[in-house]
Design a protein around this nucleic acid. Structure first.
Lengths: 141, 141
DNA sequence: TTTATTACTTTTAAAACGCAAGCAAAAATA
DNA sequence: TATTTTTGCTTGCGTTTTAAAAGTAATAAA
């Protein structure tokens, strides 16, 4: 692993781990779009390159944000699953979407505006907790 | 400006703007450490390079996350100030610090652990709102 | 065998970095 | 007041690191 951290500040350290263009996009796809295999991620609209995806999955696994497993009836396809560390990124993802909705639309009118955003605004904590519980029920068998 | 966005997802778009190693570190320094001049940022423990700092400040200004002004009695030193878009990043910063405190200490025991973290845990929303109000009172004269 | 999936490698392009020079305003000095 | 020195950025250059694109290899399913 041997990861370098810029300093001892919790915020800076968090950004040393997940502060790049792709890590949180992958977590978002798992938590809110049900993606769990290499192919799922490759086919996403964000269009990540295969080598970048490989390296990010490896990093997320090293930090125990995800686990990599195989189903008993399929020795080929890896199933990636968020751990407790991983699902606990949901509050950050929710805040990112709220900020974006409020402040980036001005620069990017095409920004998607679904009912989910309204639900988050009405009951942020409830939404976050439900997302996490739903994910656990579906994936932590 | 002409910024490219990967898709229409609010989360991905937020990361297209502030999803890099430095943007949120600069915002954190302004919001929680009172930094406001080029020199302040350069002298920070995160040790950003001058050319990277220049380019990030320009980007943050283009997205109206900060403004650049001069004081009437000093035409040399630029004063950088967070806008509404900028201070609204505080919830994201608070969630990052909570996640880091809970999940990264295992990999990095030197992580700073001050009383601020306890305050955030006890009353997250109150802490965030106070930080924002304090910043505005001190900087939006 | 053929095909599909995943992961690794190679090549090319972009971004980050350290260093240093440039420039204008302000402060110090003469 | 005039000159020099310091301060606060900004920019450019060469190097290192990281990202992207494409190709290769390994494995297993059909």
């Amino acid at each position: 692993m041997e990861h370098k951290f810029r300093c001892n500040c919790p915020i800076t350290v968090a950004l040393d781990v997940i502060g790049d263009k792709w890590a949180l996009v992958i977590v978002k796809q798992m938590l809110t779009e049900g993606k769990k295999t290499f192919k799922d991620f490759i086919e996403s609209e964000e269009a990540i390159a295969t080598n970048i995806l490989s390296s990010r999955l490896k990093m997320l696994e090293e930090f125990k944000i995800i686990t990599k497993d195989k189903l008993p009836d399929n020795k080929k396809t890896n199933i990636y699953t968020l751990t407790e560390k991983g699902v606990d990124l949901m509050p950050i993802i929710a805040e990112l979407s709220l900020w974006s909705d409020k402040h980036i639309r001005e620069f990017y009118p095409e920004l998607y505006s679904g009912e989910t955003l309204q639900i988050i605004k009405n009951n942020k904590e409830g939404f976050i907790n439900k997302k996490i519980e739903d994910y656990k029920l579906e994936n932590w068998k």
